[in-house]
């Protein structure tokens, strides 16, 4: 497996990241001094209960949200401190996104949605690469369809194709199977796995589903804004087992920082 490779570059890294929302009494600290690295060519899942800060972490890593303290790098590029224009360019050129829902523009066909990032950038997508993704995702028959004419699973596969279309340094997937039935969800996860194994893609996925996390090479557990566990080679059982003892993990983490 790719995780075994000794020469591993870091695709995404966070160093001492703090993030709080609101102020005074109503202040909620979403991230407390989070430091984490995501190796290139690896599939990492971020897990945690609601309000644990897993989505905030992903948003900060992807340059969608700013950090209060600490630094974030995508590859060699520092994300922290970039202005909106530079962030937009960074997202366009180096990051792919897969959201839980509403991934596609209803006015465009599946094919146009896949090449959307290139179109926005005013460049031409690499046709061989696009062809390869489309073939892998089994979307060849659906290219001229509008999103409303596609099933939920097909729509999400189009979103996957779009995320990979620009060969980004990292793809962030936010609950990509949250809205799908089990079978469609499995198809999407299998594709993500394939893209890591066959194309060397780096993927960071936020999920609360242990079954989904089992497709990853590594699971990072978040609770109360802190990383409480870092698990390599997860299986669904190991993840479920870990979650059962979550309260203890959180308490331990609190104790450490206190």
């Amino acid at each position: 497996m790719s995780t075994a490779s000794p020469v591993k570059t870091t695709a995404v890294s966070a160093e001492g990241v703090w993030k709080a929302y609101g102020s005074g009494e109503a202040q909620v600290v979403a991230l407390r001094d989070v430091s984490v690295q995501f190796a290139s060519g690896a599939f990492t899942a971020i897990m945690g209960p609601s309000g644990s800060g897993k989505s905030t972490l992903m948003h900060c890593l992807a340059g969608l949200d700013t950090t209060d303290r600490g630094t974030v790098h995508i590859g060699d590029t520092p994300v922290t401190g970039l202005n909106d224009k530079a962030l937009t360019k960074l997202r366009r050129d180096k990051i792919g996104f897969i959201f839980q829902q509403f991934n596609l523009l209803p006015t465009l066909t599946a094919e146009e949605n896949i090449t959307l990032p290139a179109a926005i950038a005013g460049t031409k997508a690499d046709p061989d690469w696009i062809k390869k993704i489309i073939h892998t995702l089994d979307l060849s028959e659906r290219l001229s369809h509008k999103p409303t004419e596609l099933s939920g699973g097909q729509q999400q596969r189009v979103a996957c194709a779009r995320a990979l279309a620009t060969r980004p340094e990292v793809v962030f997937a936010d609950e990509p199977t949250g809205n799908l039935d089990t079978r469609s969800g499995a198809e999407v996860l299998r594709f993500l796995r394939t893209s890591v194994d066959d194309f060397g893609q780096t993927i960071v996925m936020v999920t609360h589903d242990p079954g989904a996390a089992a497709y990853a090479d590594r699971v990072v557990f978040l609770a109360d804004g802190r990383i409480v566990e870092d698990m390599a080679d997860p299986t669904a059982d190991k993840v479920i087992d870990k979650m059962k003892h979550f309260e203890e993990l959180v308490a331990a983490a609190r104790g450490e920082s206190a």
Binding site: K89, G96, F99, P117
Partner: peptide, 16 residues
């Protein structure tokens, strides 16, 4: 709003 958010997330600039 969602659509615009998506476009902005995947790299559409404010000017665009």
């Amino acid at each position: 709003t969602r659509e615009l958010g998506l476009l902005r997330a995947i790299g559409m600039t404010r000017g665009q």
